[in-house]
Amino acid sequence: MNTELSWGSKVMRIFGKDKTAALGITIIIVTALVAIFADWLSPYGPNSAADTAQRLAMPGTAGHLFGTDDQGRDILSRIIYGTRTSLFSSIVPVVISAVVSMCLGIIAGFFQGRIGNSLMRIMDVFFAFPSVLLAIAIAAILGPGLLNVCIAMVIVRIPYMTRIVYTDTIQEMQKEYVEASRAYGMGRAAVMFREIMPNVLPSLIVYSATLCGVTIVTVAGLSFIGLGVQPPTADWGLMASEGQNVLMQGDPYVTLFPGLAIIILAFAFSTLGDWLRDLLDPTQK
């Protein structure tokens, strides 16, 4: 049986049917390409303010499509370079927390009993905090910076992802194949990670894609408070925040464009999540 073909045609069928998903995936690919080729694509450097007379140029000014900020830096160029921190700070923490949660969730679900229960009770404590608040707390303790924001996001996401893996693992444990592979003489680790893991992976992947979008928005919020990426790095959240003072004087553009970039990329990740759910996990629809 040729499963490769059926897999490919499945992708194409859903992709062709779902125009929103096609849009979202295109946005993500384009953003990734922009991040890679920023040095070639960007009209100016992220921090080059050669012309101080060009401070706060309006959008559409010759040479500055989105205008310039209060230091004369080209907003479009900074948005182009900002794709790097945005993609990094949204994807990396989610991937790390997915890996950790996969292990924790499967172990908790496989052993249940004392190990599983105490692990999940510890996770419950984290659910007592709104996730943004927890992220702010951790980032405030660790101090500002991209790395610390990523650590905060990893810690915040683990409880949610672990709970999903845990619930799925418990469901899988009741199925016959688990008992069969135990009877066949497979070790515990092999049953957990060779038999159960492939079956709980799809819903974790779907959730991860959605979380990437949520994480972009949260990280932007941390940047706004001053806990994220530090100036003069080009970062969308930080740019939107830096535009605040100018906005009070009646010029919204410095804040407007980076915010739109955040929304577009976050929206793209959420459509990617919806699309993957239809593809991998049709029962959850």
Binding site: T20, G213, V217, A220, G221, F224, G237, A240, S241, G243, Q244, L247, M248, G250, P252, T255, L256, G259, I262, I263, A266, F267, S270, T271
Partner: peptide, 23 residues
């Protein structure tokens, strides 16, 4: 609303402030 779910609160707050309190 499918786009609205991805809006950062601080950004929409700043935009509303600009539009309905300043402009």
């Amino acid at each position: 609303s499918s786009i609205g779910a991805s809006i950062p609160v601080f950004w929409i707050a700043l935009m509303l402030m600009w539009l309905l309190a300043l402009q």
